[in-house]
Design a protein around this nucleic acid. Structure first.
Lengths: 251, 251
DNA sequence: GATTCGTTCAAACGTTCGTTTTAATCTTAG
DNA sequence: CTAAGATTAAAACGAACGTTTGAACGAATC
């Protein structure tokens, strides 16, 4: 029961370095020797402290996602308590979900933009153990927020809400992961491209600006008119079936 | 057997198999032996026909992106000719850009959803040779469409348009790549999750449904109200500076 | 029939991978 | 201090990686 409270310096240095290198190179292209070399620890230290490379990646995420999803649930709890049973506004829900994440990008102690970029890229990684891990980590949060959106938008078919949640996750995921792509390929900053003043290489400013621009976009997409189908007419409004059995990864 | 191998038979089988395996496993996690084994060709055939594994990946994309971006430019040419000098409607521009792509998902001869998923996933891969390749392939198309959007939305700061283009690419990229993630992790189809009738395992239907739902979302996001900045006031409308020096990957 | 040339083949190349082993070192409670 | 356990160090493991080699094949050309 008593956790070993070693708080090993080696352990934390490995996690910090792995977080950065996985972000820069991807999981497969990052070798144990690159990690232990950059962290200035022995090669065997990773297997000693974490067991395997896969377990290392999981731990890199666990220490961040634990905080993230806990705070997301708390934010939703707070909003629902304030509303006193009434449905929330979509903007409140998005702010709680995406705002909590984007605030991590401004805080170096929570991983900063390094972790956000890693997360954005890893969500599209096809490796099975990664998808399984994310599905488990996100199951509760996604389900809670989906239910909140169902209540907030009672006139929108639930299938449509699921799709749009999917789209929103993608916009944010790619926007985060892509800013670095842009930087590397072009050598300029996103805001800089269209004439804005350049960013100091301060991730805090990037995270804040990203949040300010992403939120209106997501809200506009979420509340867009429903699509017109060219297929034979079919029921647009589904029952709130308990089909919420699924769990899926999201950012 | 009467089946006769033409000189390009091996080459095409390698490309088709590589396209599928890169999509399923990612570039790094797909070995030459997996590819040549599944294609039932000799291990050395890849290096003989393409030169290297990197060159193989580039060729997998080149044969599809050539068609895609050519058709995108033609679609834009057609619209601009019809408009006779007047700005296009944002919906027309999005339809030309994203619609052309999504139509590839409905056509097996153009790669179908397999290629779309591969594209969506590869765009976030951090390997330098991949980013460099995409930047070159997309430079002209992105620039043309960006200019069209500038003209279509003269009151929106160009920096904002660049950001929103970025968001739209992300929503589409992740939506495509994610449908398979969803299928594998949960064993159910996206539309199925919220009570819709299940899809026959027909990628054509998935591509069409995706397009019908994505387009209103993107349009809603593109036309959303501009963000309010909490930073000191600064100029919102930039000059059409020739900062269009950059080229960047997009889906 | 012999020659040529593009293609396929089996085998091996050297390197790097994640992991394991065994010993040395550090930390700390009795 | 000493014994015991936790951590680090150095070296090696077998497997898999992308690539190269040199010979064999097959269908045209002379």
């Amino acid at each position: 029961m008593s956790e070993q409270k070693t708080s090993s310096d080696t352990r934390d240095r490995i996690l910090d370095v792995a977080e950065r290198l996985f972000m820069e190179n991807g999981y497969e292209a990052t070798s144990m020797r690159m990690i232990t070399g950059a962290a200035e620890v022995n090669l065997a230290a990773v297997n000693y402290h974490f067991g395997s490379k896969e377990a290392l990646l999981r731990e890199v995420f666990r220490r961040r996602l634990g905080w993230l999803n806990e705070n997301r649930l708390q934010a939703l709890d707070r909003l629902e308590a304030q509303a006193g049973g009434a449905p929330l506004k979509p903007s409140q829900i998005l702010e709680a979900f995406f705002g909590t994440l984007l605030r991590m990008g401004e805080d170096k102690a929570l991983g900063g933009m390094t972790f956000l970029r890693l997360l954005g890229r890893t969500l599209t990684e096809p490796a099975e153990f990664i998808r399984t891990f994310f599905a488990g980590e996100y199951a509760e949060v996604i389900d809670r927020y989906k239910q909140a959106l169902y209540r907030a938008l009672p006139d929108v078919p639930q299938a449509e809400i699921v799709w749009r949640l999917h789209f929103m996750l993608g916009a944010m995921s790619y926007a985060i992961a892509g800013t670095d792509v842009l930087r590397v390929v072009t050598g300029v900053e996103v805001g800089d491209l269209a004439g804005e003043r350049p960013l100091q290489d301060d991730d805090t400013a990037l995270a804040r600006r990203l949040a300010q621009r992403l939120m209106p976009f997501l809200l506009g997409g979420l509340r867009a008119p429903l699509p017109q189908f060219d297929e034979p007419a079919r029921i647009q409004k589904e029952l709130p079936t308990q089909a919420a059995r699924e769990s899926r990864p999201g950012i």
